[in-house]
Amino acid sequence: MNKYLADRLATACFWAAAAVITGILLFFLTHIFWRGAPVLSLAFVLGTPREMTAGGGVGPQLFNTFYILVLSLLFSLPIGVGAGIYLAEYARPGPLTNLIRLSTECLASVPSIVLGLFGAVVFVWYLGLGFCILAGAAALALLNLPVLVRVTEEALRAIPVSYREASLALGATKWQTIRRVVLPSALLGMVTGVSLVAGRALGESAILIYTAGLSVSRYFPDFDPFVAGETLAVHLWYVNAQSLVPDATRIADGSAALLVLVVLVFNLCIGIPSRILQRRLLGGGGK
């Protein structure tokens, strides 16, 4: 076959693949917003849910979504980032390192429903926390942990050896080198990783059904981590599957749109500042 023809054909194939992906995404987004956008109102977004009558909102669910996310990151970030730094900077090749890596990979491949049930057994029953935000956040942390470890390790490994060498050759200690050169340079990669983790956690439901529960506090907002805290994603499943309210479909549509919107906004909130940071660090000359 003519090599130019082959070249054009290959280009066309990859274009088509990209177009299909974009098409699917666009279809989902338009579908969700087409049906959900009319529902979105301040009363819906911030209102309290109703069990029997129509017109309930999802305010507490929205709050719980972020509350659980922040708590879970609070648990998983120090451990995940710490383990990532250890693997990237300190671990020497050997059985222990292999074991740590194997553990994180196993943890990463555990289905979320299993983590949910594990959380229910350990946090809800064994530790006696009951269905609550704390239990949900702890279970969710288990989901985040392996990804954070890998994201951190990879972000650190992407930093050229030459930075480390330069720092050490100036008489910096290993910790000074990590703290002042490697981590700041890797920050962007880590932020991207964390936003991926967070995005996934925002939409997680299976884990939280068995740990954070299906109800919300009567107060709003309620910072008590020991009360049950249904999140937006769980609520979406709940109203569709078990709710008695007459406008269940409407609430589900609205929740879905809100959820997608939240994930988008969240990613932008993290992405834009980090891009500005990147431009400051790597950008061309200027004044």
Binding site: P160, S162, Y163, E165, A166, S167, L168, A169, L170, G171, A172, T173, V181, P184, S185, L281, L282
Partner: peptide, 20 residues
């Protein structure tokens, strides 16, 4: 060794300024 490297510094093959 850290004090040694302060006394005996090094410039590398490829310019490696920090991203700062």
């Amino acid at each position: 060794v850290v004090a040694l490297r302060k006394r005996v510094g090094m410039v590398f093959q490829r310019p490696n300024p920090f991203p700062m």
